[in-house]
Simulated scan of single mutants.
Amino acid sequence: MPPNIPSTLGVLLAGGLARRMGGGDKPMRTIGGRTILERVIARLTPQCDRLILNANGDPARFSAFGLTVIADDVPDYPGPLAGILAALDWTAANRPEVEWVLSAAADCPFLPRDLLARLHEARAKENAQLAVAASSGQSHPVIGLWRVDLRDALRHSLTVEDIRKIDRWTARYRLATASWPTEPLDPFFNANTVEDVAEAERLAALDAAS
């Protein structure tokens, strides 16, 4: 954990069904000789107090990465909010002293090395309850800071109100935004398609040089 930043647990969201990839786990695709998930772990490990992985199905497929794997506890794969809720619940049960969770998509190989610090800075400056990342004027709602004590409200929204979209839920709270430049590359580029993986190979060379 960087100094002067509240203790924060990181959750990598890999619960999606990867339909645009023809099924399978997007984070297990290889870029520049390393899996996308390896790259995400390397980016966030120095920033967070601990990392866990949200994924559904057999957790053994991720055993090589050494992370605790937690599944959604809301049925029917309602989307990333379910993974965030699972992480908030896990943190409350296992790390009750931790008040914040950082969520990030597990298919974003070039995440900023100052992601956590700048999100906390934006949150504190605006006295916000949540913070989200942005680049080139576009918000990335999956990548953000969440207060653990909002988990009961989030569970109600998911299970009773059937709210699935992150930005619909975050609109109820004070939300800060931290923005990053997109040169030499967008740090929130994510590999959604096979073509994206090919583009990521090119970007990996830029990232290594930056």
Rank of each mutant, 00 (worst) to 15 (best):
L111M: 08
P112Y: 06
R113E: 15
R113A: 13
R113L: 13
R113C: 08
D114R: 13
L115F: 05
A117T: 14
R118Q: 06
E121V: 12
E121Q: 13
A124Y: 09
A124N: 09
K125H: 11
K125N: 12
E126L: 09
E126V: 11
N127T: 13
A128R: 05
L130Y: 04
A131I: 06
A131E: 00
A131Y: 00
A131G: 07
V132C: 12
V132Q: 07
V132N: 00
A134T: 02
A134D: 02
S135Y: 05
S135F: 01
S136N: 15
G137M: 05
Q138Y: 09
H140Y: 13
P141M: 06
I143K: 03
L145E: 00
W146Q: 04
R147K: 11
V148A: 10
V148S: 07
V148C: 12
V148H: 01
D149M: 09
D149N: 15
D149T: 09
L150I: 02
R151G: 05
R151T: 03
D152L: 11
D152N: 14
A153C: 08
A153P: 00
A153K: 10
L154A: 07
R155G: 05
H156P: 02
H156K: 15
S157Q: 08
T159Y: 00
D162P: 04
D162Q: 13
D162S: 14
D162N: 13
I166K: 05
D167Q: 14
D167W: 08
R168N: 13
W169K: 04
W169F: 10
W169A: 00
A171P: 01
R172G: 14
R174T: 11
L175C: 10
A176V: 05
A176Q: 02
T177N: 03
T177S: 08
A178D: 01
S179P: 03
W180M: 07
P181G: 11
T182Y: 04
T182R: 12
P184E: 07
P184M: 09
L185P: 01
D186R: 11
D186M: 08
P187A: 08
P187H: 10
F188E: 02
F188Q: 05
F189H: 07
N190V: 00
A191C: 15
N192V: 13
N192E: 15
N192R: 10
T193M: 07
V194A: 12
E195V: 12
D196W: 05
D196E: 02
E199A: 09
E199L: 15
